[in-house]
Structures are given as structure tokens and as C-alpha cells.
Design a protein around this nucleic acid. Sequence first.
DNA 1: GTCTATAACGTGATAGAC
DNA 2: GTCTATCACGTTATAGAC
Lengths: 199, 199
Amino acid sequence: MDVEDTKYNNTKELILDAAEALLQDRGFNAFSYHHIAQQLGVKNAAIHYHFTSKTDLGTTLIRRFRQRFRDYTRTLERENAGPVSKLECYFAIPASYLQNGRKICPLGVLEAEFNAIPEPMQLESRLLDKEMRDWLAGVLDDGRSQGVFNFEGSIVDKTLVVVAALQGVLQIARVAGPQIFSVTVRQIKRELGVLEKAV
Amino acid sequence: MDVEDTKYNNTKELILDAAEALLQDRGFNAFSYHHIAQQLGVKNAAIHYHFTSKTDLGTTLIRRFRQRFRDYTRTLERENAGPVSKLECYFAIPASYLQNGRKICPLGVLEAEFNAIPEPMQLESRLLDKEMRDWLAGVLDDGRSQGVFNFEGSIVDKTLVVVAALQGVLQIARVAGPQIFSVTVRQIKRELGVLEKAV
DNA sequence: GTCTATAACGTGATAGAC
DNA sequence: GTCTATCACGTTATAGAC
């Protein structure tokens, strides 16, 4: 049993994977232990062995999102990625959500259900939001300093618009179709002054 | 019993009001007939008399949003409101949601829970989205033609970014605080070229 | 139009065998 | 670590009295 076995192929991780997909597909209050159990071919009680409560499961899920984002940005740092490259990687996250079954941003789900989720999950949501938005603000700041971005307004203001627009458009894509996503990303890039080609 | 009585002060309308608040506060799957009944001081079955199913209630709710928006825009038309004025009125909608208990856009809620709401509600959601976005696109088009707006990109692209950003920021306000709303609106205006004062 | 009563079901959760 | 069995509860919904 090497290190890999503790990371993958164990039920706990599979439960989290299933729960994550269900969260981004239906929302926290619209999936149950039974959904997960059925998907993994186990029984209800097996999930409870790994996560004593649904609150526990939900909180762990958000912590995993946070850790994943940290790992992702650290990798970009190690590769000495520039602001433009970092921005592309940031856009790649919602893009993969959309492709992988029209999922939406986890934070969008949690915020939409915010007043109907357990407090520990609310706290974790706040942290996830802060970490992601702070990171993007840094990228925009660097890009502007280096002259590869060109946009109006303060860093904070601009970061908010970008984050909110991406979160929103993933949701709208469910009623308006997936093609609106790339359209929106194109417009966001335009307004960041990073257009590769002229319009 | 005059006309007013049929519009207000009847239980059916009060149920819709309560359901609407609950929808924008907790989401469709996180409120029940009991919540509404309790709030109105009636019993569960009374709600069922007016709305046979929760699907019925939800669908009626979205139809009411659609009707309200239609009425609102018609009023603006009757008043010969210009594009700038119309835009301000459009921003006033999410602003009132935020003020009135940190509610979020109904469409945002419905889209977040999209795969967990009844099909009739999904259909109504599509219509509401199309109607609102088409209207705003018209406003942006007029404003640009008249030279009171000044922005990059196509009307469709720009409309999407504005709508998505507003929808997103209301959600983010729940974890980041209400003050981020006006910040975002300010940035959106900046990028529409309608800033009243210099930054 | 609203009530009481109740049905039928899904849910989160626990106890105890294997 | 997973199972069966079971509990307590909330939910949508219906029947029938008032």
C-alpha cells in the first residue's frame, strides 16, 4: 500500500467526488446520502461512516475546493506563469465546469443557498471566496503593472466584475445554452485589454 | 368589494409574496408549504387550496416576475425614458433585492437549482431570461446609437457581461458583504461609458 | 376558504451484526 | 469498512368536516 492508495481509490475520496458533482449539478439541499450511495454502489450507512453528518461532508467538500485552488496557483507560481497565462488558467476553471455537464461554480451554488446551508459551510464559503478573489486581484494588479492588461477602474472593482460575470454566465448558460460562455469570456478579455486578435 | 380587493388582501397574493421572499432567500428546494403557512398564520392545506402543487406555485411565481418586468418596462416606455434612465432603473432592481434582506436575483436561484426544479419552472425560467436580456440589449443598443453609452464589443456580448455580473455580485455579496454591490455597479457603468463624474 | 387528520414518501442519522 | 434494520422527522399532497 503506497501513498497513492491513501489519496485515490478509497471510498472517502470517491464520496467527495460524487458529492462534488451533485453539489455543482443540483445544489446542496437537492442531493442526499442516498444519491451518493447509489452512485457508488454502497449503502447509506457507508457514507455516514466516512462523514458523520451532511454538514461534515459539505464542509470537507469546500475545504477540498480551497486546497485544490491553492495547489493550482502554487503550480502556476512554480512555473513562473505570467499574468496573461494565469488569467487563461483562471478562465479554464469555469470552462471545465461547463464542459463537464453544465456544472456551475461551487461558490455560486453555496451563495445561492447561503441562508439554507449549515453555518460551518457558510464560514468555509467566505474563505474560498476571499482566497480566489484575492488571488485574481493580484494577477490583475501584476498584469496592469507589466502593461499586458489595460482596463479602467481600481483593481478591486475590476476583479469583482470579472469574478461575478464568470459566476453568473455559468448559471445563465443553463437557460440560454453553453455557447454564451465563450462569448462572455471574449468580452471580459476585451475589457481587460488582453485581446490576442483585433475584433 | 372593489377591484383592489381582488388584487391585494387576498390569500393567493399573500402566498405568492411569501413564496417569492423565501425563494430569493433560501432557494426553491429549501422552503416548504409549512414555511409559508406559518408566515401567513394559516395551515398547510390552505396553501394547497390556492396552489394544487408546489410546481404550480413555483411556475405562477415566475410568471408573476415576467409580468412585473413587462409592466415595469412598459411604464418606462410610456414615460419616454432614455437609455441612461432605463439603465438606472434596471440597476435599481437588484439594488432593491440587496436592500430588502440580501435577496438575490430570482433567475440566479432558479439557474443554480436548475437541475433540481420541475420542468415547467425550467421553461418559465428560460422565458424570463430571454425577455430581460432582450430588453437590456435594446437599451444598450439605443444608448450606443444615441452616443450616451460608449463601450467595446457587440451588443449581445456586452449585455451578457452586464447581466451576469449583476446576478453574480448579488450572490457574492452574501459572503463578502453588501458594500461590494455599489462598487460593482460603479465599475459596470464605467465600462459602459456612462460615468457621471470622473474617477 | 380554511380546518383536522392522515397518507406516502424521502431524508439524515444511529445501533448493532458481520 | 460495510451491511441490515430502524427511528424521528419534514415534506408534498389528499379526504372530508366545518
